[in-house]
């Protein structure tokens, strides 16, 4: 419950950042007279590289070869300038993140005919997440007003996800970890942890954005989830698996929406 409260607090905090920015902006050396208080609505395409990683990091397999798959993400973004150097923004992006990997796994728990067993050896891993990601962020511009950094929380609704480990060679402990009770053979079933995955995520996003032209912007982001990709009561992972990914995105600002109600900002 405490965690949920923290997530909600962080998400709401993002709403306060623009206010703080606005207060700062009025005192900024750059005049706010030129600020055009319009929502900018844009579309964006991009791709993500990443997946879920074990935290603490010591649980990352000692030999791990990831093969990320680049899937196209599609989304829309809304930006509102608060001052000349501060913007706030929100996005809605539909994305699929896929990563395959070869790994040397140690004592991975799984269930076989109602008993818990432990697999160690080499395995192919596959994970993918199809999600609707909704970041809300504050954006700060450098003096050239072309380069920007952004920071804010995100919420993601995970619509489809899978996490499968396909053992290639190794052994199984039936009585506990670090036991060799059975040799893995090629007919061994995959370990499919998909049913134990949670349907939402929340985390923080840090990014850099460069204005390429009047309408085009290039964005680079790094995001990290705060919550385990699996249900809290899952019994297969003794550590958290958190979303971590890098994103490259190109956005195109379609048009600005002038809202009379927002003109009051111009009077400040």
């Amino acid at each position: 419950m405490k965690k949920h409260t923290l997530y909600i607090f962080l998400f709401l905090l993002s709403g306060l950042l623009p206010s703080a920015g606005r207060a700062e902006g009025t005192a900024d050396s750059l005049s706010s007279d030129n600020v055009d208080y319009r929502f900018a609505l844009g579309v964006q395409v991009g791709t993500d590289v990443g997946g879920a990683i074990p935290v603490p990091f010591r649980h990352i397999p000692e030999t791990f070869n990831p093969y990320p798959k680049l899937d196209l993400s599609l989304g829309a973004k809304l930006t509102f300038p608060v001052t000349t150097r501060w913007d706030v923004g929100a996005e809605v992006t539909y994305k699929t993140i896929t990563m395959n990997a070869d790994a040397r796994v140690e004592n991975q728990k799984f269930q076989d005919n109602n008993t818990i067993e432990w697999f160690s050896g080499t395995a192919d891993m596959h994970m993918d997440f199809t999600m609707l990601e909704i970041p809300v962020y504050a954006k700060w511009s450098f003096r050239n007003l072309k380069d920007k950094v952004l920071l804010g929380p995100y919420f993601a609704l995970v619509m489809k996800s899978s996490f499968v480990i396909d053992p290639i060679k190794g052994y199984i402990g039936l009585t506990g970890p670090d036991e060799m009770d059975s040799v893995v053979d090629e007919n061994m079933d995959d370990m499919d942890f998909s049913p134990y995955m949670d349907s939402w995520d929340m985390g923080v996003l840090l990014g850099y954005e460069r204005k390429l032209s009047r309408r085009f912007e290039l964005g680079l982001r790094v995001s990290m989830g705060f919550k385990d990709i699996f249900h809290k009561d899952n019994q297969y992972f003794d550590y958290n698996m958190l979303h971590m990914r890098g994103t490259v995105v190109i956005s195109y600002n379609l048009f600005d929406i002038k809202s009379p109600r927002l003109l009051r900002f111009a009077k400040d």
């Binding site: 040397r104 160690s120 052994y171 060799m180 040799v183």
Partner: peptide
């Protein structure tokens, strides 16, 4: 069992 680097016992 000796466990090889690959996990092969």
């Amino acid at each position: 069992h000796l466990i090889a680097e690959s996990g092969q016992p």
